[in-house]
């Protein structure tokens, strides 16, 4: 049994997503080392995330993290969603997990520094998309 590739991670990664038809903001980020690439759209209203769509090409960790972002970011204040990247980074470095459902399976990534960027990429893409707000 792999310590990283728990069923929860695989289930999250298996969930598909699509770009949003009329986004308020978009971003694309890639990881040049491994080729992971996230293209992400958001819509907002009244200072909160309404919807998040994405197309993610990458490893299971990256895809799973993108699913968590897509499922959990809607409803969050824009500033709180934009701060998730820093909070997830801190979590991976051993700090507390942010108050966001679905992140528990990623605690197993903590000892694997070379994989932190895989998890972070969708959250960094989200922060980038929200930077214009």
């Amino acid at each position: 049994m792999s310590e990283l590739y728990q069923q929860a991670i695989k289930d999250l990664a298996a969930k598909g997503s699509e770009r949003l038809a009329v986004p308020d903001a978009s971003s694309t980020l890639d990881n040049p080392l491994c080729g992971d690439k996230v293209t992400l759209d958001v819509t907002t209203a009244d200072g909160r995330i309404v919807a998040l769509g994405h197309v993610t090409k990458g490893c299971l960790l990256c895809k799973a993290a993108a699913t968590v972002a897509a499922e959990q970011a809607p409803g969050l204040p824009v500033a709180q969603a934009a701060a998730l990247a820093d909070q997830v980074r801190a979590m991976l470095k051993g700090g507390d997990a942010p108050a966001l459902a679905g992140l528990e399976p990623f605690l197993a990534v903590r000892p694997h520094k070379s994989r932190h960027d895989c998890v972070l990429l969708p959250f960094k893409a989200l922060a980038k998309a929200l930077a214009s707000f």
């Binding site: 792999s2 590739y5 992971d36 990458g58 490893c59 994989r115």
Partner: peptide
């Protein structure tokens, strides 16, 4: 299977 995932499981 993504190459990073394969490499990781092989490393384990």
């Amino acid at each position: 299977c993504h190459p990073h995932d394969l490499s990781h499981v092989l490393a384990e």
